[in-house]
Nucleic acid binder design. Structure first.
Length: 422
RNA sequence: GGAGGGGUGCGCCGAAUGGUAAGGCAGCGGAUUGCUAAUCCGUAGCGAGUAAAAUCGCUUGCAGGUUCGAGUCCUGUCCCCUCCGCCA
C-alpha cells in the first residue's frame, strides 16, 4: 500500500512502476474513485452534521435527511470497497539501482563466491544419494503425503536439525531475537505482508468454513503460512512503537506450506520444490529512512553469505529486476547456491526491502524524535531454507566412495564427520 | 464438543431509562515546586478539510439490520473467562 497523496501527486511515476513490474493496474481508475470518494464524504459528512443537530421529536426532519443520506452512503460504501481493493494492488516504487526489465533474464549477478568443485568421478544427485544412504524416502513420502511428499531420515534428519540449531545460535549472537511464530494465520496477516491478494493460489486455506442452518458458509477461513514473514510482521500489527525500540531484529523458525499451484510440472523430482519445509527467516523493522533500510538489506544479505561461506558452499548473489520482483518490493536480492546435479546455481535465499509498503497495510507505526507518527520500514530475508540447502550439502560434499562428508562447522553438533556414520 | 458470562477512545480500570461516548490510572508533552517525589494544565485513533489552524464526520471486538437517532434492540462472526467433556 502506498499513500494516496503520493499516488495523486505522482501518477506518471506510478504508471511507470506498474509497467516495469508487469502489473496490470489502472492508476487513473484509482484517482477517479478517490475523487468520487472524497466528494461523497464531503456530502455525507455535512448531512450527518445536520442529522446530529436533530432534537427529540423532530422525526419528520430526520426522515427527510435520511432519505437524502441513504443512497449517498450506499454509493460511498460501494466506491470505498472498490477503492480499497484497488489500493491493495498498488505496487511499491523501486530503487533507482534496480535493473529494469520484464522478467528474470534482466536480473543481474553482482557477486560470486567459491569455486564449484571438480569431481573426478561420476556424481550422484541428492535423490540417488538419499536412496543409497537411506536418507530420503520420496516414494513413501508420496504415498503418505501425496505429490511432492518426502521423508527425511537418519543423518539427513540430523543434518537438517543441526543446520537449524547452527543458524539459530548465529542469529542470536548477532542480536536477533528468536521467535517460533504461528503458522496457522488469519487473512489480515497475508494481506498485510502482501502475499494477498497477489499470490492467493499459492497459499493453503484450512479450517472448513462452518455452515448455518440455511447452508450458508460463514466461518472465518484460516491459512497456512508459506513463510514465517507474515506471522512475524503481524506480531506488530496496529502497534505504535517508539523510535528507541527500533530497529527490531527478529528471526522466526517454522514449517512453511506452499501449494505450488502455479508450478505444475516444474522441479518435480527431489527436494527442490516441496509443499512443506522448514525455514529460518529474519525480519527487521526500522526507521522510515530508505538509507537506513537499505543498509539493513545489505547487512542481512551479508549474514546469509557468511553462513554459506561457513558451510563452504559456492554461491552467487543476484539483484532482482523490476519484472521479477513482487509488487511490494523496493529492492531485492536472491542468493543462489551451487547444486552439482543441476550443474547450476539454485535459489536458496531471498532478501527484500519493502520500505513502508507492508507497514501501511499492517498499520505499524513509531513515534519519531520530533513526536510525529510515521510508518516503519520492514525487511525480510532467508537465513536458511531447508531442505533446499540440504541438496547443496549432500551433493557438494559427496565422495568417491559414495559417502558424504559433513561440513566442518556442523560436525560439533552432530558428533560425526561422515555420512553414513559408523 | 456442551452450558454459562463477557469485550467501551491503538495500555489498564470503568460509567452511560434507545437521545448524540462521564470519570480515574498509566504513558507522553508542558508549567511549577525541589530531595528517591508531589501538584497543576494539556493529551485517543482514523477520515474530510486547511499553508497551518479552525471546523465537521466516523470509530464502544468485527460485519450487517431495525430506527429520525444504537454502546444499548435484532442477526451473524471473532476473541476472552468459568465449568463440563476430550486431549499431546
Amino acid at each position: 500500500m502506498l499513500d494516496i497523496n503520493f499516488i495523486r501527486q505522482n501518477p506518471d511515476k506510478m504508471k511507470e512502476t506498474c509497467r516495469v513490474k508487469n502489473i496490470d493496474l489502472n492508476i487513473d481508475e484509482i484517482l477517479k474513485l478517490d475523487k468520487e470518494r472524497r466528494e461523497l464524504i464531503k456530502k455525507t459528512d455535512s448531512l450527518r452534521a445536520e442529522q446530529n443537530k436533530i432534537k427529540k421529536g423532530e422525526i419528520e426532519k430526520g426522515r427527510k435527511i435520511k432519505t437524502e443520506l441513504k443512497p449517498l452512503l450506499e454509493r460511498l460504501s460501494l466506491v470505498e470497497k472498490e477503492y480499497n481493493s484497488l489500493m491493495l494492488l498498488v505496487p511499491n516504487i523501486v530503487s533507482d539501482d534496480t535493473p529494469v526489465g520484464p522478467d528474470e533474464t534482466y536480473n543481474k549477478e553482482i557477486y560470486r563466491w567459491g569455486e564449484p568443485k571438480n569431481f573426478d568421478f561420476k556424481i550422484k544427485d541428492h535423490i540417488q544419494l538419499g536412496k543409497d544412504l537411506d536418507l530420503i524416502d520420496l516414494k513413501q513420502g508420496v504415498k503418505t503425503s501425496g505429490f511432492r511428499g518426502y521423508y527425511l531420515k537418519n543423518e539427513a534428519a540430523l543434518l537438517e536439525l543441526a543446520l537449524i540449531w547452527h543458524v539459530v545460535l548465529r542469529m542470536t549472537a548477532k542480536g536477533f531475537s528468536p521467535v517460533i511464530p504461528p503458522t496457522i494465520i488469519r487473512e489480515f496477516a497475508l494481506i498485510g505482508s502482501g502475499h494477498f491478494p497477489f499470490d492467493r493460489n499459492e497459499v493453503y486455506q484450512i479450517a472448513n468454513p462452518g455452515r448455518l442452518a440455511d447452508g450458508n458458509k460463514i466461518k472465518e477461513p484460516l491459512f497456512l503460512g508459506g513463510t514465517s514473514e507474515p506471522s512475524l510482521l503481524a506480531y506488530f500489527a496496529g502497534k505504535t512503537l517508539t523510535e528507541k525500540e527500533l530497529p527490531i531484529k527478529i528471526f522466526g523458525f517454522s514449517q512453511c506450506y506452499r501449494s505450488e499451484a502455479g508450478s505444475y510440472g516444474k522441479d518435480t523430482k527431489g527436494l527442490y520444490r516441496l509443499h512443506e519445509f522448514m525455514k529460518v527467516e529474519e525480519v527487521i523493522l526500522c526507521k522510515n529512512d530508505v538509507n537506513e533500510s537499505n543498509k539493513w538489506l545489505e547487512e542481512m544479505r551479508e549474514i546469509s553469505q557468511e553462513i554459506l561461506e561457513e558451510l563452504e558452499l559456492p554461491y552467487r548473489v543476484i539483484q532482482i529486476s523490476t519484472g521479477d520482483m513482487g509488487a511490494g518490493k523496493y529492492k531485492m536480492y536472491d542468493i543462489e547456491t551451487w547444486m552439482p546435479s543441476r550443474n547450476n546455481y539454485g535459489e536458496t535465499h531471498s532478501d527484500s526491502n519493502m520500505t513502508d509498503w507492508q507497514a501501511r497495510r499492517l498499520n505499524i507505526k513509531y513515534i519519531d524524535e520530533k513526536g510525529e507518527k510515521r510508518f516503519v520500514h520492514t525487511l525480510n530475508n532467508t537465513v536458511i531454507a531447508l531442505p533446499r540447502i540440504l541438496i547443496a550439502i549432500l551433493e557438494n560434499y559427496q565422495r568417491k566412495d559414495g559417502r558424504i562428508d559433513v561440513p566442518k562447522v556442523l560436525q560439533k553438533y552432530l558428533g560425526f564427520k561422515i555420512i553414513p556414520r559408523k
